[in-house]
Design a protein around this nucleic acid. Structure first.
Lengths: 226, 226
DNA sequence: GCAAAAGTGTTAGAATTACACCCATGC
DNA sequence: GCATGGGTGTAATTCTAACACTTTTGC
């Protein structure tokens, strides 16, 4: 059975929230094409490697994170002829949501990697190489939408977090202010969203706040509204 | 720049609602692998062809429909090594929602095609070739979810339809009964969902019903609840 | 004490639900 | 007339949004 072989790659939209800022991990390309321009991390899928496995490998190379600590899901696949000057390359894009990394971004990859505010990158459609502006836009839109009806915001938080830290994630990703009091009720009353650890912290200042972990829910009923 | 070439294909989850039944278009495979088994329509992407263009070509071959009349969106991409015995094949799955076709399904494709109730196919995980059971399940879940917050149900209807025909789509896809009176209010009051044509029909029996067309909305606020 | 953030209570308005009821047609 | 589905009205309930107010810490 004949078919025309093509290159298959994965690209990663790695998002985090750092100090109230919603940011994406970009690399400066060290090789052609688009040498010296900013791009999403990514690379070709190896012959005996699954697509998600390839994305996990790239993610570990860039961030040092392993699969337990991160949320990774497919966004979409981009394959217009001509999107890559090297030839026909089809790219499967993945969305990774990671907590604010205590360790530096430095991975085994030699190319320089940097966290950049999402708003800044999206404001300039020509900033990124290839069709990565569209890929980023699609990934960001997916993340924003999923915060509403899934407990995914916890993926941006450390293992234990306060309700106001969780609210900070929503505010950074959506770019809106939420009522702290109503948000507190929503987060703690929504079945399975968060579970209290019994501990408290004063790291946010003011009255000590309860610490929570991610709950078992996979969907939020009712959703958190934007 | 070296990469390992792979086969790239598209598979189609073509869904419709016919006489109150939620159905998927399957073909019986005429060639190996999985010869004689049921599968989703699909085929390899041509060298200079875009992914969506390939899906549209397959769709036209199977149903005779052109792009104006149908909704087509990407579901996901499936590329585990070993999913296709012919070698490393990555398949980009597309979801197509089509109205009940007045013309027979017969296309230029020689393989026999048939509409089969979705529930029947999903009930038997071994019915379909390759990993098509998973692809179908993902496509169906996408369609069910999108009915809630998008005006996509109209994609299953002819250009002009009554509110009860629209409700029939929801009931068939979700497998639930909806209150006709509350649904009527919801559909007609939700901004941009449907627009009245001014015509009426008695084809559903009883009092004449107003005819509507799809409205300009791309999202429904508030959503239709399951 | 004062500032800051956590957390609870309350109330008005909006949306959802269930169902009573009337309308316009075919037969 | 009578059956059938179309379409409107309305009240009970639930959800949301806005904000007053109390609690517990650091300084």
């Amino acid at each position: 059975m004949g078919f025309e072989p093509m290159g298959v790659a994965t690209d990663l939209v790695i998002l985090t929230v750092r100090a109230g800022s919603f940011e994406v991990l970009l690399i400066r390309r060290g090789i052609a094409p688009h040498r010296g321009r900013w791009a999403l991390p990514g690379g070709f899928v190896r012959p005996a490697e699954g697509l998600k496995a390839a994305a996990l490998r790239e993610l570990a190379e860039e961030t040092g994170l392993d699969s337990d600590q991160i949320h990774l899901e497919q966004i979409a696949t981009y394959g217009e002829p001509g999107r890559d000057p090297r030839g026909r390359v089809v790219s499967v894009a993945y969305l990774a949501l990671v907590p604010d990394l205590p360790a530096p971004v430095a991975g085994t990859d030699a190319a320089s990697a940097e966290w950049v505010p999402v708003a800044e990158v999206l404001a300039d459609a020509k900033r990124l190489a290839f069709d990565h502006h569209q890929v980023l836009a699609d990934g960001v839109e997916r993340a924003r939408a999923k915060l509403e009806y899934s407990p995914l915001a916890t993926a941006f938080c450390p293992a234990e977090f306060t309700i106001s830290e969780l609210r900070g994630v929503y505010e950074a990703v959506w770019g809106v202010a939420l009522d702290p009091r109503n948000f507190h009720r929503k987060a703690t009353k929504t079945e399975g969203f968060v579970v209290p650890t019994g501990e408290t912290t004063t790291r946010d200042g003011g009255r000590p706040a309860q610490l929570f972990r991610r709950g078992p829910a996979t969907a939020l009923h009712p959703p958190v509204t934007r």
